[in-house]
Design a protein around this nucleic acid. Structure first.
Length: 217
DNA sequence: CACCAGGGTGGTT
DNA sequence: AACCACCATGGT
């Protein structure tokens, strides 16, 4: 089986450091993780700037703010009605448990199940929050990673999420590495080679399938 | 014009 | 359990 740290090295060589997450504040990272659902990041930046200007980038404030005001700020992210409600759900959950500082004392499994109880937070968003906002060593699994894992196997077999987790964690188990990996996987997936079978042009090519691409065969 | 973007939910087979 | 429509704006 291909070592995932080698995959990461190859991606790093091709795409360079991604320096995620582009924020310093914990709650801002959490808000960004929610708003970026099915949305390009550049459209999230404007929304966060609006929220910051309006003074809404705080759990206790956001929790008690009307949805219309929130919708106005986040319109650029799409699904703004859905996301305004989800932001309030998240803020309410955080306040209920004493703020981000108190949450930080929870174990990773505890925090994960807590996040998953919030309407609008699914597995990927929860894991992104754990990794990028709370610095927990978590493997964030998205469609890009599933696709990548599949093409790295000899028979292109679909691999269950828990297997992907174990596979990645086998060689990448630290926060910095997992942080960089998720960002690199997305950078790779967004490029055209990420959608073409066996990555005919990129650094991953030699690792796909049996080690030979369809083009070389 | 069509298609995609750092998903999740609820309903239907 | 596997699909499906839906959410909705902004860029290419």
């Amino acid at each position: 089986m291909i070592r995932f740290d080698q995959v990461q090295d190859a991606l790093l060589g091709e795409f360079g450091p991604q320096h995620w997450w582009p924020a310093d504040d914990v709650f801002e990272i959490i808000v960004g993780a929610l708003l970026v659902q099915r949305t390009a990041w550049r459209n999230v930046e404007a929304a966060i700037a609006h929220l910051k200007t309006a003074g809404l980038l705080d759990p206790d404030v956001l929790r008690r703010t009307g949805v219309e005001a929130i919708e106005q700020c986040i319109k650029s992210t799409g699904f703004f009605r859905t996301k305004a409600g989800r932001l309030k759900n998240l803020a309410a959950c955080i306040v209920k448990h004493g703020g981000t500082e108190s949450l930080a004392s929870l174990s990773t499994p505890e925090m994960r199940s807590l996040l998953l109880q919030v309407d609008g937070v699914g597995p990927e968003t929860a894991d992104a929050i754990l990794l990028y906002a709370f610095n927990r060593p978590v493997v964030v699994i998205d469609e890009y990673l599933r696709r990548l894992a599949r093409r790295l196997t000899p028979d292109r077999a679909t691999i269950p999420d828990n297997r992907i987790r174990a596979w990645v964690a086998g060689t990448i188990d630290d926060v910095v590495g997992l942080n960089e990996l998720h960002a690199l996987v997305i950078a790779h997936g967004k490029k055209s080679c990420g959608r073409v079978p066996d990555c005919p042009q990129c650094a991953i090519r030699s690792m796909c399938g049996t080690g030979r691409t369809a083009l070389e065969a």
